[in-house]
Amino acid sequence: MAPFLRPGNSRWRGLGQLTPLLLLLAGLVLVRFSKGAGFTDAYALISRPFWPGPAQREWIVSANDVQQTSRLKLLERDNQRLRGLLSLQQRGSQVGLVSAAVIARRPRGWWQLLDLGKGALQGIAVNDAVLGPGGLLGRVSSTTPATARVKLLTAPGHEIGVWLPRSRSHGLLVGMGSSRPQLRFIDRDLDVRPGDLVSTSPASTLLPPNLPVGVVQAVNEQAAPATAAVVQLIASPEAIDWVQVMTR
């Protein structure tokens, strides 16, 4: 019997033989246009057990800390050099830190103060800056040989000059008795926004420069005679058992 032949059958058979190649080509085009998504997902799935664990994360964090510390040191050195060039008082480089326990506290009420367990014998003097975790708490107002009394920034009428690094403007931080002191400016039109950092002035002669103080919480542009703001202090005197006094 003669074989059954159809014209064109051989053409389809040739195409069938090429099908795997065409599929492969289509797959590669897909990979190309998906930017290798399938491969990376598959790789992620397979390699998951070998991903860096918490130990490696700690190494990275530690390395990051070292990097930040060294960067801070470099910046501080640079800052000192520039301040020297400007002939400003270089208190930042000369201060010593004395850790002192808080032996009595009256953060609310008529007199807002802390009593510290170290005094003149440890080198603490009147007007030394007192730091808590986060920033400036207040200034030493009086000392005895063994204790020091700190006037908190929130104490009514306590005034210090401050600096807003973002808007590069000066202000006067005034304690109002409440937990949030008021920031007063001289100029009316200032670019001050909630969230701005408040620090001691870089050119301060009374306090060490560039100490963080607080964050602007609200701005009152209608205040007379100039703009005023409410500042949330970073360091909270209510929950601090130890402070650091920057002696000169």
Partner: peptide, 14 residues
């Protein structure tokens, strides 16, 4: 006055 704990005050006021 020196030793008043915070909890003895009213809203922190001794």
């Amino acid at each position: 006055t020196l030793a008043t704990p915070p909890w003895l005050g009213l809203d922190g006021v001794p």
